[in-house]
């Protein structure tokens, strides 16, 4: 992104990062911790969308589901299947929180693709809190469930004895890097794709003005369509990745032997 900003000149006036700015919804005052901002707005829109799909669409409790209800059921079965596959039936105790994570990330990601919207999950403050919450909870859970046996996840008993201390150091480092990679993966993916779309949109404006009849507009628009299609895939996959990694970490806490 630095390259694009250096390339800015008199004709190229692209601000791909503007879309990530946080501002107060009412007035221009400073952003206090309680100020309603565009973060608040889009989080609440996401909550409303979750209620619309998961609560209002399922209100009929039909044995033969309506379209909305079958989507809600699909999400339910998908997340439940993921937990059971990775952590076994024991992980279903944490189904509500994992479902909360998946729904909130999925909806904020998808809503962020609307034009003029704001992507909450493109901020590392948000994804960092989500990842640290998972990291802290899983670490505490590991010690509560297994006591000091939880430390076995760092001591690879299958490896030759001489290698074990070295592996232990690597395992410990990778364990503490987890929340970092967990959060930056999500925020980075959201930010990069949206910024790229914005850059192409800037090109479109420049080319529309700089070519006869604005025919130069076609190339950036086609590029935006392609990136947008890719982004649709990415936002869903990133929500899935965040959730499945949470399950994997949870499995470590529940079954440190493996």
């Amino acid at each position: 992104m630095a390259a694009e900003e250096h390339a800015e000149g008199a004709t190229l006036n692209i601000h791909p990062m503007d879309q990530f700015q946080i501002h107060s919804l009412f007035g221009d005052g400073p952003v206090h911790w309680y100020t309603p901002t565009n973060v608040t707005l889009w989080l609440f829109i996401a909550v409303a969308a979750i209620v619309l799909l998961m609560v209002i669409a399922t209100r009929g409790r039909n044995v033969v589901p309506s379209r909305g209800q079958s989507v809600a059921e699909m999400i339910y079965s998908f997340v439940r299947g993921m937990i059971v596959d990775i952590t076994g039936e024991g992980g279903l105790k944490y189904f509500p929180y994992i479902m909360t994570l998946f729904l909130l990330i999925l909806f904020t990601n998808v809503l962020g693709l609307l034009p003029y919207s704001f992507t909450v999950t493109s901020h590392i403050a948000v994804t960092g809190v989500l990842a640290m919450a998972v990291f802290t909870a899983v670490t505490l859970l590991g010690f509560i469930k297994n006591g000091t046996k939880f430390l076995k996840i760092f001591w690879i008993s299958e490896a030759p004895l001489v290698l074990r201390p070295i592996l232990a150091i690597i395992e410990i480092i990778s364990y503490f890097v987890r929340p970092v990679s967990h959060s930056i993966r999500l925020a980075g993916n959201m930010m990069a794709g949206h910024a790229v779309i914005k850059v192409f949109a800037g090109f479109a404006a420049v080319l529309a003005a700089g070519t006869p009849l604005g025919v130069g507009l076609v190339a950036p628009i086609v590029a935006i369509m392609a990136v947008y299609g890719l982004e649709l895939l990415v936002v869903v996959i990133q929500a899935y990745v965040f959730t499945i990694l949470t399950c994997v970490y949870l499995n470590d806490a529940l079954h440190p032997g493996h």
Partner: peptide, 24 residues
Amino acid sequence: TFPNQIFWLVVSLVVVYFIVSKVI
């Protein structure tokens, strides 16, 4: 802006968690 983001995120998480565990 971090305190603001974190505050509203926690509010949303609590709300969604409540809806998920009590209704959905």
